[in-house]
Structure formats: C-alpha cells, structure tokens
C-alpha cells in the first residue's frame, strides 16, 4: 500500500512537468529537451524564496513559475522561433541549453545541491488510510489532482483548448480560419515553462534542487510523454502514474531491476500502443 502511495505521489510530480512538455510537443511540434532544466530553475528560485528569504511557500511557487516562464520566453524567442520543423536542430539546441542552465544555476546558487525544502505546515506526517505518510506528499497529490482537473477543463471545455486541440489535429485548417496559431502555441510554450517551474518548487519539497535535474527529471518526463501520447492531459496523467508506480513498486518487488523496470514497462506499452496510451499522433 505504501509503495502504491509513493508511486502515485511521484507520479503527480512527474505529471506536473510532463503535462506541459506533452502540450508543447503536441501543439507546437517542438522537442524542448530543456524542459527539465526549467523545472530545475524553478526549484532553485523556490529555494531562494522559501528557504533563503523565508517567504511563504505559495509565493515561492509563483516566483518559480515566473522565473521558468521568463527563461522559457528567452529560449523560445532566441532559439525555437527560428527552428520550426527542424527536429534535429531543436534537440541539439535544447540539449545545449540544459548544460548552459545547469552551469548558470551552479554559478548563481553554488555547486552544492539543495536539501529538500522544509516548509512549516508541510513538514511532518499525516494519517492517510491508516498509514503514517509525509504531509508534503499528500500536498503534492492534492495539487496534482487540482492541476490535472484544471488543465483538462482548459483543454476540453474552453475555446483556447479547442483551438489547441484543433491545432494539433489540423494546423492548416486552424490557420485558414484566421486564428494566429503561432501566438497560441507561443503562449502555450510559456505556460508549459511556468508549470515546469512551479513543479520544480513543489517537487523541491521532497527532492530539493540539484543541477542534475535538467537531465534526470527530463528523462522521466520524456517517458511520461512517450507513454501518455503527446498533447493529451489524461494521457500524461496516466503515463506519469505508470512511471511513478513502476519506480516505486519495482523497488519492493524487483529491487535488483528497479533501475530499468520502468523501461521494460515502456517497451511493453509501446509495443501494444505505438502512439502511446492516448493514441494521439503529432501533426507537423
């Protein structure tokens, strides 16, 4: 039971970062491998606000999101705006950005990783289903559920969501209707970046902040997107929960294979559903 809860809580952290990445790939066709680095930037900014300055945690989340959004705008305007449809170049450039941002955070915050954040009210434990469980994990799950519901509503029940969905299925048609799809997509890139930054602060409660997150977290987020299928919020949620659960459960059931059990699960799912769980295919 504890392993399942652990998997779900890790799944929700990954959902927060993977959902933004999934939408960016799905709506814009941009492979932004620096998405994990935006998570890292958010985590470090959150550390400064919540731990160094001692300000409220909600403010740390806002600041982390804003900082990552600002970096996202920069990355989009400097690089991705000029690399539309050039997937190889996008991958190479964004991978370079990961290294740049990792060096920048080490320059600004020092080379030592930051310990998990201690936040009044979120430290300690609660009784959950008869188990003593970390309050921070319960908070993360709650945020993930609220955030997932909000994203689903935005995507399925609003005009903007309809444009995004239509843009994924048939961008040419959306443009012929006079909709500035590039603006919508750019806005989505910024929102996705902000969500990654906010996820970094929230994830900092249990994982702290490390320069290696740019790659470590990105790897898991990519698996979430591949499993869930690009552009699908429910798909990202299911993918994230699969990743989280396979990570947590394999430690208990197959400890010697926990390092690669996730990839076995991924391989099996992709054999059965090559386009991921949601079945959506990217349209260029």
């Amino acid at each position: 039971m504890l392993a399942v809860l652990n998997g779900i809580s890790l799944g929700f952290v990954l959902f927060l970062i993977g959902s933004g990445l999934s939408l960016i790939i799905g709506s814009m066709g941009i492979i932004n491998l620096a998405h994990g680095a935006l998570y890292m930037v958010g985590a470090y900014v959150g550390w400064s606000v919540a731990m160094d300055a001692g300000l409220p945690f909600w403010l740390a989340i806002v600041c982390g999101a804003l900082a990552a959004a600002a970096v996202g705008v920069l990355i989009h305007q400097v690089f991705f705006r000029h690399l539309s449809g050039l997937l190889d170049e996008q991958i190479l450039v964004s991978f370079g950005v990961v290294y740049i941002l990792a060096d920048v955070v080490q320059w600004v915050w020092g080379t030592n990783a930051k310990a998990p954040f201690s936040v009044p009210g979120l430290d300690g434990s609660v009784n959950l289903l008869g188990l003593i469980y970390p309050t921070a994990r319960v908070f993360i799950m709650a945020v993930g559920i609220v955030f997932g519901a909000l994203l689903w509503w935005l995507q399925q029940r609003t005009r903007i969501g309809a444009i995004v969905r239509a843009g994924m299925d048939d961008p040419q048609m959306v443009r012929t209707m006079g909709i500035r799809l590039d603006l919508v997509a750019a806005g989505l890139f910024v929102i996705g970046s902000a969500v990654a930054g906010a996820a970094g602060v929230i994830g900092g409660l249990v994982m702290g902040a490390q320069p290696s997150f740019g790659i470590d977290i990105m790897l898991l987020a990519l698996v979430v997107v591949v499993l869930g299928g690009v552009g699908s919020i429910p798909g990202a949620l299911i993918g994230a929960l699969i990743v989280g659960l396979s990570q947590a459960v394999s430690v208990v059931l197959f400890p010697s294979f926990s390092g690669f059990s996730l990839y076995v699960v991924m391989a099996v799912i992709l054999v059965l559903r090559p386009a991921g769980i949601s079945g959506r295919v990217v349209t260029q």
Partner: peptide, 17 residues
Amino acid sequence: QQWVPLGTTDLLPYASN
C-alpha cells in the same frame, strides 16, 4: 541491502521498503 540506482530522484520508496 538496498542499492539505489544512479539518477534516482525519489528516495521515499527505499525508506518505505
């Protein structure tokens, strides 16, 4: 004896196991 693979980001499973 629990061995944590390189790149593991979440250590709670090792505590609960």
